[in-house]
Nucleic acid binder design. Sequence first.
DNA 1: ACAGATTTGTACGTATGTATA
DNA 2: GTATACATACGTACAAATCTG
Lengths: 249, 249
Amino acid sequence: MVGQLAADSIERRSGVSLWRQIADKILHAIAIGDFAENAALPPEVALAERYGVNRHTVRSAIAALVQEGVLRAEQGRGTFVLSRKRLSYPIGARTRFSAGLQGQALERHTVLLASSVEPASHRVAEGLGLARGTDVIRLETRGEADGRPVSRAAGWFEARRFAGIDAAMVETGSITASLARFGIDDYLRQSTMLSARHADAADLADLDLQPGAIVLVTVAVNVTPDGQPIQFSESRFPAERVELKLSAL
Amino acid sequence: MVGQLAADSIERRSGVSLWRQIADKILHAIAIGDFAENAALPPEVALAERYGVNRHTVRSAIAALVQEGVLRAEQGRGTFVLSRKRLSYPIGARTRFSAGLQGQALERHTVLLASSVEPASHRVAEGLGLARGTDVIRLETRGEADGRPVSRAAGWFEARRFAGIDAAMVETGSITASLARFGIDDYLRQSTMLSARHADAADLADLDLQPGAIVLVTVAVNVTPDGQPIQFSESRFPAERVELKLSAL
DNA sequence: ACAGATTTGTACGTATGTATA
DNA sequence: GTATACATACGTACAAATCTG
């Protein structure tokens, strides 16, 4: 189905490039409901013919919309409208993955992607209050809600104190539960730095994103209630699927 | 100056597209210091000849790097390496523009871009605890640090209570100082929602960004110490120039 | 102030590669 | 295997913005 993608109002030498006009037409068509979420757009050649432009001009328009997070293009399959609903991920004094998404997703869990022991880099050492080069365990995890990846995190823990936390993570599927095995019943978020950037290749793969997607990046230190640093973490959230709700920290 | 942009290792039919290989070459050249911040890259035609590819292939590589926030292309002038230093903007219980950037920029100020009176939209009314449609004053401001735009914000205030706040803003150049004229000596951040997206046309113009740039978006409500909502705001920060530091909220 | 050169942006055309159905 | 659909790469031409003499 093609809907109301009329070619009439495409104007040459109007000061607005053709590809931008076509991108705006597609946006409008989506806005008025001509294309539902996850619906396929007509193929590039069909759109090109419809608008009376070259296929490359349509490609420029689609590329812009992919980049803006509106469409997803899949080689050999087609171009699809992305879903726009976002989860609201709370960040505060007690930031917990599963508890935070309660009520927003039926099923939440964390999977361990990789783990390793490595010498602490400068920023990890500083965050954990260790000497640079001290052995730390790195856990790479992915958070999923209702089957969709919503976060990708690297967490660093002092290796001597938390030996075996990787195994605990595999068993329990939860950082909080794993820490409990080491006698950590409670922990607090000490500091959080927040930035945003385009997803890199690893983000694209692990979070199932399209090139050009944006990730929100938090760098945080978790401490015990008496202020002892236990975890340094860097988390990436796909901006198209998650927004962050900052609460009392 | 062209530096070490050698063409030798560009490989066809290697499984990695030519434009990506060239983009990585340019990234590497920047990383090893062949191009300083703000330095101009060789023109597209020169790069194309150097690598033995078509100009469009170089353009694809440059487009990717512009999109990743590494380069800035200016029609008629050239393509330049972007600066990578970021300001750290604190967000917490007492979030103040100028005070927050103290020590990071010599000169900070806020300019009023526009102001208007309008009926409160659903989300503004909800944030301020007003009936929908109540008149509110909207102030559009831009924050600058050392001459560079670092934020663009829309703030909404109940029109009846804060009549003339636009004039106060022009005079004082500060939201905090303007609120003081209405007897608000202190105010706190009640809630903050955080997301990220690509900059729209207005962001590009007001923040002096390139298409494809990312903005961090905060939506917040400020309240008096006794909990009365006084300001609803939506702020946009260019992610390439600003990161957010979350503190006690 | 103007003309010409330089440099990026847009738009077209054509061919071939790669992934999916 | 064939057809479809997006991806890459080449080529050409001209427009628009900027810089230079």
